[in-house]
């Protein structure tokens, strides 16, 4: 790796546009929201105002957000997202692996086939899922034909997790594909030649070598899951609430933007903590450099 001082012009050309874009169109707007999280609705003539705020009044929104009620919901969101992420990884890995080892002719087609469903609007896709899984949906009709069911497959946590896996699959497949694709196949051959079984090779060689893709995929799936609200809204039952739903409500029905902003930042802090934990663990097990 070069020191940035060695070639300043290249460094700034590469770094400049992206950094600028992110600072102006992301960090700055986020700054507005951050200020909002420390604010309160203004009180005008003894009434709580609907649209005006008193800025930087204190941390009351954060105090409210560490109530057990919201912590329980955050915790529930974490495990639902974790489960969805694991399932996503278990399904996406073989897909990405298969695509990478397919013949050159098939590769782009298979990749396209994986991504294609995601060009259909999320809502339409979710409604299509509902049509397939509802009490009188096709799955139950098929099961009914062989004398089983009908089963209630919608409006529970299973449906939410399945829906999340279905929705976020390409975020897992694409980074995995990018990493496995560049995997040096000679390592696998060497391992097999040296007498390791396919399984051992996969466990000891393939997985460690593709770890960066796995980690990227896990991050790309876990985090959007954590903040999702449409999927639990549409597929979940009476218990399906996730923190994304609570946040969404603050910005819409409850009209409590300061509290919504505070909850959003709480969610971000939780994510940062998880990412830092990962970095820390990676450092501790620094035996394998990945």
């Amino acid at each position: 790796m070069d020191n940035w001082k060695d070639n300043r012009s290249v460094f700034w050309t590469l770094a400049g546009p992206g950094t600028f874009w992110l600072l102006v169109f992301f960090i700055l707007p986020l700054g507005f929201l951050f200020v909002m999280s420390f604010s309160d609705k203004a009180i005008i003539n003894g009434e709580v105002s609907i649209t005006e705020y008193d800025y930087l009044t204190g941390i009351s929104n954060y105090i409210r957000s560490v109530d057990t009620l919201y912590l329980t919901i955050i915790w529930k969101s974490i495990w639902v997202s974790a489960l969805a992420t694991v399932l996503c990884l278990l399904t996406a890995y073989p897909i990405a692996f298969g695509i990478c080892f397919a013949s050159e002719k098939w590769k782009p087609l298979l990749l396209l086939l994986v991504v294609l469903p995601f060009w259909i609007n999320l809502l339409i896709r979710t409604y299509a899922l509902i049509a397939v899984f509802r009490s009188q949906g096709y799955v139950n009709l098929a099961l009914g034909a062989v004398g089983l069911g009908p089963y209630d497959m919608l409006y529970n946590n299973f449906a939410v997790i399945f829906g999340l896996v279905y929705v976020y699959m390409p975020f897992m497949v694409l980074p995995l594909y990018a990493t496995i694709e560049r995997l040096d196949k000679s390592y696998l051959e060497a391992s097999l030649d040296l007498g390791a079984s396919q399984f051992t090779t996969f466990l000891k060689v393939t997985i460690p070598l593709t770890m960066p893709g796995i980690i990227t995929g896990v991050i790309l799936v876990f985090i959007p899951c954590l903040g999702s609200f449409l999927t639990p809204d549409l597929l979940g039952g009476a218990n399906a609430i996730m923190i994304g739903n609570v946040i969404e409500r603050q910005f819409k029905a409850a009209n409590d933007w300061p509290f919504g902003a505070a909850l959003s930042f709480m969610l971000m802090y939780a994510t940062f903590a998880a990412l830092m934990l990962r970095a820390f663990l990676a450092k501790r097990s620094a035996g394998v450099d990945v």
């Binding site: 992206g18 960090i27 707007p29 986020l30 959007p224 994304g244 959003s264 940062f272």
Partner: peptide
């Protein structure tokens, strides 16, 4: 790198509202 990862980490709805605030103001 953490800074680059922010748009991925942040819930979409926060980003939507933040941008709404920004574009309006």
């Amino acid at each position: 790198e953490a800074f680059m990862g922010l748009p991925i980490v942040i819930p979409e709805i926060c980003m939507g509202v933040a941008l709404l605030l920004f574009f309006n103001e």
